[in-house]
Design a protein around this nucleic acid. Sequence first.
DNA 1: CCCTTTGTCGTCCCCATGACGATAAAGGGT
DNA 2: ACCCTTTATCGTCATGGGGACGACAAAGGG
Lengths: 234, 234
Amino acid sequence: MTEYPPFAVTVDLVVLTVRAEQLCVLLVRRGIEPYLDRWALPGGFVGIDEDLADAATRELAEETGLAEPAGHLEQLGTYGRPDRDPRGRVVTVAWLALLPDQANPVAGTDAASADWFPLARLVPGQLAFDHERILADGLERARAKLEYTPLAAAFCPPEFTVAQLRAVYETVWGTSLDPRNFHRKVTGTPGFLDPVGRSTEGERGRPAQLFRRGPAAILHPPMLRPDPPRPSEG
Amino acid sequence: MTEYPPFAVTVDLVVLTVRAEQLCVLLVRRGIEPYLDRWALPGGFVGIDEDLADAATRELAEETGLAEPAGHLEQLGTYGRPDRDPRGRVVTVAWLALLPDQANPVAGTDAASADWFPLARLVPGQLAFDHERILADGLERARAKLEYTPLAAAFCPPEFTVAQLRAVYETVWGTSLDPRNFHRKVTGTPGFLDPVGRSTEGERGRPAQLFRRGPAAILHPPMLRPDPPRPSEG
DNA sequence: CCCTTTGTCGTCCCCATGACGATAAAGGGT
DNA sequence: ACCCTTTATCGTCATGGGGACGACAAAGGG
């Protein structure tokens, strides 16, 4: 290790949540150059003695003000085009986080401000660096993972109804699903849902049974998205 | 970018191929410390002006002596535990390559030697650094991808038979598949296989039709592995 | 010429799922 | 009290993919 090219390494987070029937991503407004005042994914430099996953967790906590919430965090991919940061050679490890809608006040740290953005409202070219591509990759990963994992529950509070879970699928996929078939599918897949034993109260309509995330790590067989053309992939 | 912790960035390759009914990985014997004389995944440092994907492609070409073969190369994940390399802080971007059995002579570059290892013959603790975990992750990725992509063809020569393709699945998954159902599935999935129009000659048994990879990028519906318990996943 | 080997087509059955009707269980209004 | 709306949940039916397996085709070898 006498000689090697020095890199800067950062983590960037694609933090998704579902609120008000909309799939939203957490963005921060940059307070420094480059891309001053532009929106960007939250992130930051990795400490020289810090594990990558720890750095991601730390940034997530800093930006959302939450200490390891009940959501989900996984590595998304690494982006390192030589020209992606005008300041020099920066390689970023991107992470995907799925969080329940915890009315996160979003603590302002070094970022000027941070807020949830409905994805439908984003316009091309709005994000700093290559964050638009990272976001697109994160979105596709999230959509794909709902098919073969029980991760949709990561968008829900600890206890939730089948209808809430269905709303997550519908929002993330942008489709509508038959309530009866969906109910049959999720309650019939072993390990997907654990019945709490209680029901909702005070809501409109018939009370709904409450569930928690089950122990299953994957869905088998998967819950496939409806017809619309499927994305290509490398 | 005035101040940031300096990292070294490497790429490491999980190069898989199927030869002699065995799933094999390309390993190199290390010629320098640390882990001198231990087997490791092929890889090396990323140039300061080099794209990550280019570095992976370059290493693949160096280690196999092949310039971008008909196989497949994709990013697998990034590993950066602070203590993973005793020489200092090294973050490695791992890549997964699937190659046909091109009787690669494996050019010896800086590595002392390189060779294909049947996975069944690897013993725990045999690999340098955290390469055992990287390899395990690559294996699971490859196995999973055969389910919902036509990537099995990446293990085959440009023109191949259904039986060759089936052998790939059986070898990678370690299962046996019904030849008739497999034939129906792969020939019935639009875009999976393109018929060449010719057949094999001089083989045992009835000549088999030759195919090329079709244009499909994903398999829908997927080809699911037989029953055996499915691996958990984060 | 038979036998073995391998490829390919066809049949049967079951289960998962899409489409959709019917019923249960709450609240709100008159 | 009653009806109406809303939502949850259970059933029914048809379709289609896939597992199990039989049958035939097309080569080579003794």
